[in-house]
């Protein structure tokens, strides 16, 4: 069973990884994406105090489900779990978990990388970075 979810609560990474495991699988690859304190931008180090994520919830869930379905078409994998947290995220806390269960690890690694890349490109969720002296909406991967 695939599992897509948005939550304002802390994400239990292990639980997401476990719930996608069917009997034909031998490996689950799980990405645990969490809030980074230091970011280098234009060779300047920026310190983030915390993050706030906002989602267009109905559309974000639809897009996450589309990604899970497409990944299963394109890769030899069995199940996908995608959970994204919204609201305030402290440094080091998990913002996104993607778990991919597959009969063999190679396909799970490839699908997981594809899923996070596409999630950052298409799923309507926005990240605001809060610094000591201000805040800014992140411009996403394209700008990094």
């Amino acid at each position: 069973m695939d599992h897509c979810e948005l939550t304002t609560e802390p994400i239990n990474v292990g639980a997401v990884a476990r719930r996608v495991v069917p009997p034909e699988c031998g490996a689950t690859v799980t990405l645990d994406g969490y809030a980074r304190r230091f970011t280098t931008r234009d060779s300047k180090v920026i310190e983030t105090e915390y993050l706030v994520y906002e989602a267009y919830e109905e559309m974000a869930l639809k897009e996450m489900q589309k990604l899970a379905a497409k990944a299963k078409e394109d890769f030899a994998i069995s199940n996908v779990g995608i959970v994204h947290r919204t609201g305030k995220i402290e440094i080091g806390e998990t913002s996104v978990v993607i778990s991919v269960a597959a009969p063999h690890r190679k396909d799970a690694f490839a699908a997981c990388e594809w899923l996070i890349k596409e999630l950052k490109r298409t799923v309507p969720i926005w990240k605001k970075e809060i610094y000591a002296d201000g805040e800014a909406w992140s411009e996403g991967e394209a700008a990094e």
Partner: peptide
């Protein structure tokens, strides 16, 4: 659903306007 500028909007449609997404 993502739309392009020539997509047609009908009465009652839910429209949203946003900048490039930055989840993850």
């Amino acid at each position: 659903e993502y739309a392009s500028s020539d997509s047609i909007v009908k009465a009652g449609d839910e429209i949203a306007i946003f900048t490039s997404v930055s989840g993850g």
